[in-house]
Simulated scan of single mutants.
Amino acid sequence: MLIIKKYAAIDIGSNAIRLLISNVIIKNGEEPQFKKSSLVRVPIRLGADTFVNGIISSKNKQRMIDAMNAFKLLMNIHNVEKYRACATSAMREASNGKETIEEILQQTGVKIDLIDGQTEAAIIFSTDLTELIKNDHSYLYVDVGGGSTELTVFSNGEIINSKSFKLGTVRLLNKDKSKNEQWKSMEKWIKKNTKKLKRVSIIGSGGNINKIYKMSGKPPGKSLSFIYLNAHYTFLRQMSYEERVSELGLNADRADVIIPATKIYLNAMKWCDAKKIFVPKIGLSDGIIKTLYLNS
C-alpha cells in the first residue's frame, strides 16, 4: 500500500525566507522517501534590520506578512496537510520579534515558532546523514546562516557537543561589533572539542556552501578539498559584487554573503585540521519536514 503525505516547512532566516513543500512517500516495509515538490525563496533580509538597528522595520514586517499570505495560498493549492514555520536569529534578537510574530499570526493565520540555536541545530541534524557518515570517522557539522553558525561535533556515530555562535553572513557584512570575540570563541571551541579526534571532516550546510558545491561541478557525494575551497574563496574575493552577479550568475542577495560564508567554513576546517568538506543537500527546511513526519 502506498501513501503520499504533503508537508511544508517555512524557514525564516536572516538572509532569506523559504517555503519547502515535500511529498512523503510511505510504502509498507520500506523507509519513507522525502521528495521535494516545490521550493520558493524570497530575499527578505531581516538581519540587515536586526543586526544594525535591533528592530524589524515596518517595510520588512509588511513584506513578511505578504510572504506568509502567499505561502499560505501555495500550501492550500498543494493540499499541504501539515506545516511548521520556524524563525531563527534575526527574529530572535529583534526587540519587536515576538510582536511581529503575533501580528503575522493575526493577519495571516500562520503560526511561527521562535527557535534557539541548539533547537535549530537539532532539527537540521535530524535529517538523514547515514549515507555520508562513517562510524570510524569524526565530523564537525557546520551550518552557516545569516545570523549564526551552528556547530556539532560527532564521532563514532554519536554527538560529542554542539554550540551556536553569533557569526553569520549578514551579521559579518554589517560589521557586528562582537565579531572578533565570536571568532575567538569559535576557534577555541572547535580546537577544544576536536583535539582528541583523528581524521576530522567537515559537513557543510547552508545555501552558500550548496551554491559553491554546485559551481564546482562535483557529482553528489564527493567532497571538496580545503585547497579547492581556499582557491575558490580567493577567486570570489577578486571579483566585484557586480561581476559575481553578472558573470557567475549569483542571485543579488547571494553575491555578497557568499564571501563571509566561505571564510567561516575555511576557518572551521583550519581549526580542526580538516582536509575535506562534504556538502549534502540538507538544511533547516529539510529537518522541519522530517520532524513533522516523525511526530505525526
Rank of each mutant, 00 (worst) to 15 (best):
Ile3Pro: 00
Tyr7Arg: 05
Ile10Cys: 07
Ile12His: 02
Ile12Asp: 07
Gly13Ser: 01
Gly13Lys: 02
Gly13Gln: 05
Ser14Arg: 04
Ala16Gly: 00
Ile21Phe: 13
Ser22Met: 14
Ile25Met: 06
Glu30Trp: 04
Glu31Gln: 15
Phe34Cys: 11
Phe34Pro: 07
Ser37Tyr: 15
Ser38Pro: 01
Leu39Asn: 00
Val42Gly: 01
Pro43Leu: 00
Arg45Cys: 10
Leu46Arg: 02
Ala48Arg: 12
Thr50Asn: 10
Phe51Glu: 11
Val52Pro: 02
Asn53Glu: 12
Ser58Ala: 15
Lys59Ser: 14
Lys61Glu: 13
Lys61Gly: 08
Asp66Phe: 10
Ala67Lys: 05
Met68Gly: 07
Leu73Trp: 02
Met75Ile: 05
Asn76Gly: 03
Ile77Phe: 10
Ile77Thr: 13
Asn79Thr: 08
Ala85Leu: 08
Thr88Asn: 05
Arg92Pro: 03
Glu93Cys: 05
Ser95Ala: 13
Asn96Asp: 10
Asn96Glu: 08
Thr100Ala: 15
Ile101Phe: 10
Glu103Asn: 12
Ile104Leu: 07
Ile104Ser: 01
Val110Trp: 12
Lys111Gln: 11
Leu114Ala: 00
Leu114Arg: 04
Gln118Lys: 14
Ala121Glu: 05
Ala122Ile: 10
Ala122Leu: 15
Ile124Glu: 09
Asn135Glu: 11
Asp136Ser: 14
His137Ile: 00
Ser138Gly: 12
Tyr139Val: 09
Tyr141Asp: 00
Tyr141Arg: 02
Gly145Asp: 04
Gly146Met: 00
Ser148Lys: 05
Thr149Phe: 03
Leu151Val: 08
Leu151Lys: 04
Val153Thr: 13
Val153Lys: 07
Val153His: 08
Ser155Gly: 03
Asn156Arg: 15
Asn156Cys: 10
Gly157Tyr: 10
Glu158Ser: 12
Asn161Tyr: 11
Ser162Ala: 14
Ser162His: 14
Lys163Gly: 03
Ser164Phe: 06
Phe165Val: 02
Leu167Lys: 11
Gly168Glu: 04
Val170Cys: 10
Arg171Val: 03
Leu172His: 06
Gln182Gly: 09
Trp183Val: 04
Ser185Met: 11
Ser185Asn: 15
Lys188Ile: 01
Lys188Thr: 06
Ile190Met: 05
Lys191Val: 00
Thr194Leu: 04
Leu197Pro: 01
Leu197His: 02
Arg199Trp: 08
Ile202Thr: 07
Ser205Gln: 03
Ser205Phe: 03
Ser205Ile: 14
Tyr213Arg: 06
Met215Tyr: 04
Lys218Val: 06
Pro220Ala: 11
Lys222Phe: 10
Leu224Asp: 05
Phe226Asn: 11
Leu229Asp: 04
Leu229Ser: 07
Ala231Val: 06
Thr234Gly: 01
Phe235Pro: 02
Leu236Ile: 02
Arg237Tyr: 05
Ser240Thr: 15
Ser240Gln: 10
Glu243Thr: 11
Glu243Gln: 14
Arg244Met: 09
Val245Ala: 03
Glu247Arg: 11
Leu250Trp: 02
Asp253Gln: 03
Arg254Gly: 04
Ala255Phe: 08
Ile258Asp: 03
Ile259Tyr: 12
Ile259Gln: 08
Pro260Glu: 09
Lys263Arg: 14
Tyr265Glu: 09
Lys270Trp: 03
Trp271Thr: 06
Asp273Trp: 05
Ala274Lys: 06
Ile277Cys: 06
Val279Phe: 07
Val279Asn: 00
Lys281Asp: 12
Ile282Arg: 09
Gly283Ala: 08
Gly283Ser: 12
Ser285Lys: 15
Gly287Ile: 09
Ile289Asp: 13
Lys290Ile: 14
Lys290His: 13
Leu294Glu: 15
Ser296Ile: 04
